[in-house]
Design a protein around this nucleic acid. Structure first.
Lengths: 229, 229
DNA sequence: CTGATTTGTCACGGAACTGTCACAGATCCG
DNA sequence: CGGATCTGTGACAGTTCCGTGACAAATCAG
């Protein structure tokens, strides 16, 4: 089944698009904001993404850039604005096509089919490398990408914090003692275990919504820390 | 050089398009009829074809079908008719995009670049320049051509910078340590890692819009550098 | 051959990070 | 309840890390 993700804040338009696409035999998903769309696409990637430009919060251009950062999915902008500037900017941001609302559903699907013909194939071209990602609840950690995100938003962490988080994430759900963490993250055979506390605290400030009541990076008194999903 | 073939019977429009495309740095060829266009493309294949629908003799739809029969060149229809029926028919015939006259040249070239990113690899008779292009965000890198473009505009880079960029682009999304870069780009087993910094800095001056706040070539403190998609 | 470009080295200053400490809460246990 | 233990956190200084301008050697183009 071919899936299409529609990112559009206007409920009426989104619904109309979803219904029309389903009529055409597509499996259609909707998202009302860029953030939601990005999350959905990361979790459950569709074959195509339709995106509006005027979105509350993160706008369409930024949405396109973020989608493109780790996904080669064909992106079609469906916008009310018929302005060269917007069109060029959207295409430069990584969109594959740009259509102006209102658009005939037949045209839209014809454009999707045209895009599918061009969908990047393995071929002689360079197949983009997949960067592995550990997912723990709303956290996404890519050890190779040196990147941490919460709910799709990048979170800046230091190297030590990053290593600590990777270590915890690799054993998500298991308790790691301060001693184990000192060894694995710092390479210390012995040392002040308070060091771990401090870094855990700093990490919490960054990755927890409410650092005083951690949901993911929890303390097990007398035992150590664990990262839970 | 990137070549574009314009098949359009109206002399004024064809000339205007050719001049505008040349201004944008393309090598532009014209043909007044479908027959002539097909002949030209067979002899001397362009990288893109723009085609009008209303042509004397063989019409645009047929022209597209015949082009497609033995060529994977990206085809953009440039037509005065804004009609769902025509759009769908043209796309079904094998066109990749459809724009309505009059069209801003900036939009047209942006659409060409978007198509280049999707250019099919392999296939018969495709223009040679299209094959190996690494695309990272708004950057396009042809490892064979030794050419880098940002938003379609050629960027002059030195050989070392180019190798560095290719290395980073091949592993886009992954962090590469200074050590890895020294090895892969310079072939040094050991050496001053500051060398990498300097070249990264120089590269940023060229490929980043705001080199002080890089969007693509980012530093991961303590880890190395990576090229963001 | 000569001037221009590219490349590698160095040093410096500022920014970011790390580890330590002290202290205040929190939790446990008798 | 009260002491003992464990944990969270703010402050701080030393260290590391990074960006950059300057400059000389090497290379290239004409």
């Amino acid at each position: 089944m071919t899936a299409v993700l529609v990112i559009e804040d206007d409920d009426r338009i989104r619904l109309a698009l979803l219904l029309a696409l389903e009529d055409e035999g597509y499996d259609a998903l909707g998202a009302a904001t860029a953030e939601e769309g990005l999350r959905v696409q990361r979790r459950n990637p569709a074959n195509y993404v339709l995106v509006d430009l005027m979105l509350p919060g993160l706008d369409g251009f930024e949405c396109i850039r973020q989608l493109r950062r780790d996904d080669d999915v064909p992106i079609v902008v469906v916008s009310a604005r018929d302005d060269t500037h917007d069109i060029v900017a959207a295409l430069e941001a990584g969109a594959d096509d740009y259509v102006v609302k209102p658009v005939a559903i037949k045209e839209l699907t014809a454009r999707l089919r045209a895009l599918r013909r061009r969908a990047r194939t393995g071929g002689a071209g360079h197949a983009p490398e997949l960067v592995p990602v550990l997912v723990v609840g709303e956290l996404e950690i890519s050890p190779d990408g040196g990147e941490v995100r919460r709910a799709g938003q990048p979170v800046p962490v230091t190297r030590t914090e990053f290593r600590l988080l990777c270590e915890l994430a690799e054993h998500a759900g298991r308790v790691l003692s301060r001693q184990q963490l000192l060894e694995r993250v710092w390479g210390y055979d012995s040392g002040d275990e308070r060091l771990v506390d401090v870094h855990v605290g700093r990490l919490r400030q960054k990755i927890e919504q409410d650092p005083a009541n951690p949901r993911h990076l929890v303390t097990l008194r007398g035992l150590g820390y664990k990262l839970q999903r």
